[in-house]
């Protein structure tokens, strides 16, 4: 399983890497700094799960989603939004874009672990 972490903050990326490492489930973590890079990585690496920050330069997380919507092969990809905002409006937009999961920063480690485990299980079963 591959997880793509898209966040302009390196520490967050680092954190996710550490969490995943700790899990020791053989999940690969790919990093992207911004939406553009993410797009590229998605196309090349085809991750199974994308952890997406909203507030990013060059292209916001929502914009990326919108673009991704038009690229059918990646429909199967699960996206989870990571956002500091936590605003209802953003949740609505996420909903509208077909994103079901939403994690607000700062998040609990457990929360993150649960989330990833959940996806992994799903993956494996499939």
């Amino acid at each position: 399983m591959k997880i793509l972490i898209v966040d302009d903050e390196p520490l967050i990326r680092e954190l996710v890497v550490q969490i995943v490492d700790d899990l020791d489930m053989g999940i690969e973590v790919i990093e992207a700094e911004n939406g553009l890079e993410a797009l590229d990585k998605i196309r090349t690496e085809t991750p199974d799960l994308v952890l997406l920050d909203i507030m990013m330069p060059k292209m916001s997380g929502f914009d990326l989603c919108r673009i991704l919507q038009t690229e059918p092969p990646h429909w199967k990809m699960d996206i989870v939004i990571l956002s500091a905002k936590g605003q209802e409006a953003d949740k609505q937009i996420a909903k509208a874009l077909g994103i079901k999961k939403y994690i607000t920063k700062p998040f609990k480690i457990e929360e993150m672990i649960e989330l990833i485990k959940g996806y992994a299980v799903n993956r494996e079963l499939l």
């Binding site: 520490l11 967050i12 550490q18 920063k105 998040f107 609990k108 480690i109």
Partner: peptide, 12 residues
């Protein structure tokens, strides 16, 4: 963001 970092890393 830094909070996430703080909390996350401390947790780890």
């Amino acid at each position: 963001t830094p909070l996430t970092s703080i909390l996350g890393f401390v947790e780890i």
